[in-house]
């Protein structure tokens, strides 16, 4: 695999960009930071599938495409299916000797939103991982169905206000806990699983490169701060992501072959969860006195998860 050096940012910046501007994602959208970095961290040919969601509708607005590589748009539930199908065809044609450039390095990547990954494309993703396709699935996790106006998904965290679980007089918003897709994918048989965030660019690039180099199905959950639905100023996308990783609301770790868990980022100063919540409009109501207990519960959940991750890292099981 031809990898781009990510030793430091200066080296990385000599890469040749393959994700073009004048896509229509919101100003400050993290989806494009993640996609751009994936495409910039390798020289290999890429076959990318993207299902319906903000990324797809904004990067293929007829008659334009922002992709400098083979790219397939497919229906909402099928990002994994399209990548798996392309990969299976590639292998078959290689075997039959009908490929024009059989030695050219090719990598298969699927991008899906959390709505399509955690909910609607879940069984198709699970099937593709079970079949062991050699591909990398990247979930752009903005914790809601952003493209259709901010409905809740099973990735939406407790207490967030969304259009289908709004906070108001009788409700504090989302009542269910965020689904643990990393544990599910590791148990599903994924060879490599990682949680990444664009503010930790090097950590993210290293996870991408590991996944691309892994022979087998890989799942990456990427924090994608959404200025529109999380309700923060577009300039603050990286600041919000810093708060997410440094408060451990969004811990960064990897799971290799289902068992070997490594924490890949340990913040020097762990910030209180309330700092992360306070920076976003979707959690504004949690700061009413009657909801103070919810913030305490948040902090406890985050502490418990961190404790769990550390124990799993130590136990190697």
């Amino acid at each position: 695999m031809a990898i781009t050096s990510v030793k430091n940012l200066k080296e990385f910046s000599t890469t040749n960009e393959r994700f073009e501007g004048a896509h229509l994602l919101c100003p400050g959208c993290a989806h494009s930071m993640i996609v751009r970095e994936l495409m910039n961290c390798t020289d290999d040919n890429l076959v990318i599938s993207t299902n319906t969601g903000c990324l797809e509708v904004s990067t293929a607005v007829y008659p334009y495409t922002s992709w400098d590589t083979s790219w397939i748009h497919i229906g909402f539930e099928n990002a994994a299916t399209a990548a798996a199908g392309a990969e299976a065809m590639y292998k078959a044609r290689k075997r039959k000797g009908t490929l024009k450039n059989p030695d050219a390095p090719v990598k298969f990547v699927a991008f899906g939103g959390d709505g399509s990954t955690y909910d609607i494309g879940f069984q198709w993703l699970s099937g593709a991982v079970e079949r062991g396709h050699n591909f990398t699935y990247i979930c752009l996790d903005n914790e809601n169905y952003a493209n259709t106006g901010g409905q809740r998904s099973s990735s939406t965290p407790i207490g967030a206000s969304t259009t289908t679980a709004p906070a108001g007089r009788v409700s504090y918003g989302e009542k269910r806990n965020k689904k643990d897709m990393l544990a599910i994918m590791a148990a599903n048989g994924a060879s490599y699983v990682a949680q990444v965030a664009p503010n930790k660019w090097k950590n993210m690039a290293q996870a991408f490169q590991k996944a691309l180099a892994t022979d087998g199905p890989c799942y990456i959950n990427a924090l994608s701060a959404c200025t529109t639905e999380w309700k923060f100023d577009p300039k603050d996308t990286i600041n919000i992501s810093d708060l997410a990783t440094d408060s451990l609301v969004f811990p960064l770790y990897e799971i290799i072959d289902g068992t070997e868990l490594n924490i890949t980022y340990r913040p020097k100063n762990v910030l209180p969860v309330k700092d992360y919540l306070a920076a976003q409009g979707r959690f504004k109501h949690l700061f009413k006195p009657e909801n103070a207990y919810l913030i305490e519960e948040w902090q406890k959940r985050v502490d418990a998860k961190w404790e769990y991750l550390q124990r799993r890292e130590e136990a190697r099981v």
Binding site: L9, K10, F12, S13, E17, F19, E20, G21, A22, H23, L25, P27, G28, C29, A30, H31, S32, M33, R36, E37, P198, W201, T237, I238
Partner: peptide, 14 residues
């Protein structure tokens, strides 16, 4: 100082 922070995080390849 050409640190490239702005380059890596610009969402619009700009």
């Amino acid at each position: 100082i050409d640190c490239q922070n702005c380059w890596v995080w610009c969402p619009d390849s700009s």
